[in-house]
Nucleic acid binder design. Structure first.
Length: 825
DNA sequence: AGCACGCCGACT
DNA sequence: GTCGGCGTGCTC
């Protein structure tokens, strides 16, 4: 018997392996296998039965091992990844890799050790010397680890030659699976001592006090209904050490049992309160009925749930999911970024408890693996998480919810597959005869058009949900502050104009809360020499360094690679001492607020303050407990619901408009509408929103001010239609990356040239240097592809043909194909 | 991807 | 002559 195996490499083909007699039973489609491949060993996935070995004109190698008894990949997921590979023009192996939890692949590994031999011969070999230095600094490591630190250009051949010289030792082994079920040791009486009176007999027979205490403790646990308690619990109760337990085990009286436990990072978060049950609004009920009808009919359908902020979308998701669970089927909830939507996640946990497996971007490998395993074994029936949760290993899927479906974070970029989780969700639901709900207050223009074209069914929630007293909060008043005008009136000194300052002051005095959005972190985004215009740039990226303040000190930091530098006192170009701080980040706003409202409690929430595991959670809890102001980047704009927030301020509404991206105004409109929705959720306290801008007439601001989604969509769609941009066409980009600028450019020219020949009806623009030309010392070029009409087929065909014709780029150079690009930069 | 092979220029 | 750069082709 043979099987076809797909490997997690950018190879567009399956390889056939013979299955030894002993492994035939386990070798099912979807299972991981360890296979020989050239001169290494890799973990691959069986995708199906292969042709008979005799019919093949090459030597068929044998599978070395089957690594799963239950296949990691269900039949449905196998198909889905094939679709992803076809649609997003990526190798099947890369798409398959996305469904495997991290750390579950085994492969050949080269372990390196430095020997005592004097490395004289390698002192002037540059790479060789660097490797030896790295080895000296890190002790024993693997070749992969060395490459990660030193750079990819460390050939195995070089290591072999160094080994021949005896300056290093190489051992080639298989890596361990880096994740495994976590076990705990439990304790029980040995079979001969399990009868009721055994403990008393034992206590009589034993001499040591500690040993008796252990037996007594274990008997106590048994009496409480825990016949196999954790070893550590017994030791603690008996105040005994492990050696006491061990001697009892050696005497054959007790036994140790290894039990699997699940690591769950949410255990240390407080369990949410059970929610009050209340009636749905008519619109919510209608939406729910439409969804449950489809669920009942076991029929595919995608519903675009367009509900204004505060209209109770989550309640509809929850009830729909209850209906699905009542029929014994499973569900997936996608949220844009789980750390940012703790309130949504907690509401699901309150309703579904242990049925939910939360997949969290801040979870470690073991925790993710456990969550994944609970889903795979059916122990959990609902997955909630960010985009990768769309590939959760669930069977008999009934519902996929995509919350805030317009969010750009649903598009994966690096590594491949570059899929859009919303579109994969629709496709997965379709193949599973399941229902998909796309929810948003500001749907993407794509989804709005798909609803108009009848591909999705549109459901509207036009009203906010009333509170317990029956009052409904009105949408907040939105005031646009023209900064140019403010300056003229001498009402602008710093980042916050006087009217916004006054509004904040009033809220603090009244004990109400304020949310302030400034979509840039750090203190000042740019420094500039007043005399010659010099501005500090990152040495690895073509971006200016951002000034950060911390504990009284200052530092320059690159937001792309993390490079940090000291703040120059003097311009290195002209020696000038007048170095100005230009622009405003969250830290600078924070400093200004401390002067404006010195008595207020201010919480700053951005990537710098939420780095720790429960950072978001802690900050939000402190805000809930009554801080005055929550200031932050766009992470504060989503899904937060605090009843005492009566003011939302946007320090600079124009930040997103500066990007040369056809989606810039859509993004800005969405962000402003979302953040405005955080205000006035209290029923008795009216909300106010203040937007500061230098473009008061910009359409995105105008429509956000009026809460006019339809108006915005009309105008934006007309423009997209004219230009043939999505949803009236498709775009794809090809990004070229590598260490040498000229070579990247040549590669890009070459590739694009061939692409033009295969383009057919598609338009090819470029190549040109990327918006940010250099990131982490990699130069970047970019080519844009565009086609009118509903099908991305011509783009995909052109990309596939070009990739096949062009072959692999040179070592160290990358060609990244991205279909349905979100950031066209 | 990662590696071997094989081709060229510049050094002992 | 050979070391090491880089393009090319292959992995069941």
């Amino acid at each position: 018997m043979t099987v076809n195996v797909v490997l997690p490499l950018p190879l567009d083909q399956a390889y056939t392996y013979r299955v030894p007699e002993a492994l035939v039973g386990a070798a099912q489609a979807g299972a991981r296998v360890l296979v020989p491949f050239r001169n290494r060993r890799l973990t691959g996935i069986i995708v199906g039965e292969g042709p008979a070995a005799e019919t093949l004109d090459f030597d068929v190698k044998a599978v070395l091992d089957v690594l799963d008894d239950v296949p990691v990949c269900t039949e449905g997921l196998l198909d889905l990844t094939k679709w992803i590979a076809d649609y997003y023009v990526c190798p099947w192996g890369e798409a398959l890799k996305a469904v495997l939890p991290a750390g579950t692949t085994v492969e050949t590994e080269h372990r390196l050790t430095r020997t005592d031999a004097a490395p004289d011969a390698w002192a002037d070999h540059e790479v060789g010397r660097t490797v030896l230095e790295d080895l000296a600094a890190h002790g024993e490591t693997t070749l992969a680890a060395v490459r990660k630190r030193v750079g990819p250009a460390v050939p195995l051949a070089l290591i072999r030659r160094m080994a021949a010289d005896d300056v290093v030792a190489v051992e080639t082994t298989l890596s361990d699976e880096r994740v495994a079920p976590k076990t705990e040791t439990h304790l029980r009486f040995a079979p001969a001592f399990q009868h009721k009176d055994a403990p008393d007999d034992l206590i009589e027979q034993l001499r040591g006090n500690k040993q008796r205490a252990v037996v007594r403790a274990l008997a106590g646990f048994r009496a409480e209904g825990t016949p196999e308690p954790r070893r550590t619990d017994v030791m603690e109760r008996a105040d005994a050490s492990y050696s006491t337990v061990r001697s009892l085990v050696e005497k054959g009286m007790l036994e140790l049992v290894e039990k699997e436990v699940m690591r769950s990072p949410l255990d240390d978060l407080p369990a949410p309160d059970p929610p009050p049950d209340h009636d749905l609004l008519p619109a919510q009920q209608d939406a729910l009925d439409a969804v449950t009808d489809a669920v009942d009919a076991h029929r595919y359908g995608t519903f675009l749930l367009h509900g204004i902020t505060g209209s109770g979308k989550t309640e509809v998701y929850i009830r729909a999911l209850q209906a699905v669970r009542a029929r014994g089927r499973t569900g997936i909830i996608l949220v844009p970024e789980i750390a940012l939507t703790p309130q949504t996640v907690q509401r699901f946990r309150a309703h579904f408890g242990d049925e939910i497996a939360v997949l969290h971007s801040q979870m470690n490998m073991g925790e993710r693996y456990d969550a994944w395993r609970r889903l795979r074994t059916g122990e959990a029936a609902i997955a909630i998480g960010p985009r990768s949760a769309v590939l959760a290993p669930l069977e008999d899927l009934g519902l996929i919810v995509v919350d805030e479906e317009h969010e750009a974070s649903y598009k994966q970029f690096d590594p491949a597959p570059r899929y859009h989780a919303r579109d994969v969700a629709v496709m997965r639901a379709h193949r599973a005869d399941a229902v998909c709900i796309l929810g948003s207050a500001t749907p993407s223009l794509e989804s709005t058009m798909n609803a108009r074209w009848g591909k999705y069914e549109r459901l509207e929630l036009p009203e906010r949900v009333p509170d317990a007293s029956g009052k409904t909060a009105a949408l907040p008043d939105v005031r646009v502050l023209d900064l140019a005008l403010q300056r003229k009136k001498h009402q602008l000194d710093g980042a916050l104009a006087d009217p916004l300052r006054e509004a904040i002051r009033t809220r603090v005095d009244r004990g109400e809360q304020t949310i302030l959005l400034q979509n840039r972190r750090g203190y000042a985004p740019v420094l500039e020499c007043e005399d010659c215009g010099w501005a500090p740039e990152c040495q690895s990226c073509s971006v200016s360094l951002t000034l950060h303040r911390h504990d009284g000190g200052e530092q320059l930091r690159c937001h792309y690679c993390g490079y940090a530098a000291r703040v120059p006192r003097q311009c290195p170009e002209c020696g000038g001492r007048d170095i100005h701080q230009i622009g405003t980040g969250t830290q600078r706003v924070e400093a200004e607020l401390e002067e404006v409202v010195p008595d207020a409690t201010i919480l700053r929430m951005d990537r710098d303050t939420t780095r720790e595991k429960h950072g978001h959670h802690d900050l939000l809890r402190r805000f809930e407990n009554g801080a005055d102001i929550l200031l932050g980047t766009q992470m504060i704009a989503k899904g937060l619901d605090f009843s005492r927030v009566t003011l939302v301020g946007v320090v600079d509404a124009d930040v997103g408009l500066l990007f040369p991206d056809f989606r810039a105004e859509e993004r800005t409109f969405q962000l402003l509408t979302q953040v405005a929705g955080r205000a006035g959720r209290t029923r008795e306290l009216a909300g106010e929103v203040i937007l500061q801008t230098r473009n008061p007439d910009h359409m995105a601001l105008r429509y956000a001010q009026e809460h006019d989604y339809e108006g915005f969509a009309e105008e934006a769609l007309a423009e997209r239609r004219e230009l043939g941009y999505p949803p009236f066409g498709h775009v794809a980009t090809v990004e070229f990356r590598g260490p040498d600028e000229d070579r990247v450019e040549r590669l890009a020219e070459n590739w694009t040239e061939q692409l033009r020949q295969h383009a057919g009806p598609a338009g090819v623009m470029g190549p040109e240097p990327a918006f940010i030309q250099r990131v982490k010392k990699q130069h970047r070029y970019r080519t844009l592809l565009k086609v009118r009409g509903g099908s991305p087929g011509p783009l995909q065909t052109a990309l596939r043909r070009t990739r096949d014709a062009h072959g692999a780029p040179p070592n160290g150079y990358h060609v990244a194909v991205d279909v349905d690009t979100q950031d066209v930069l």
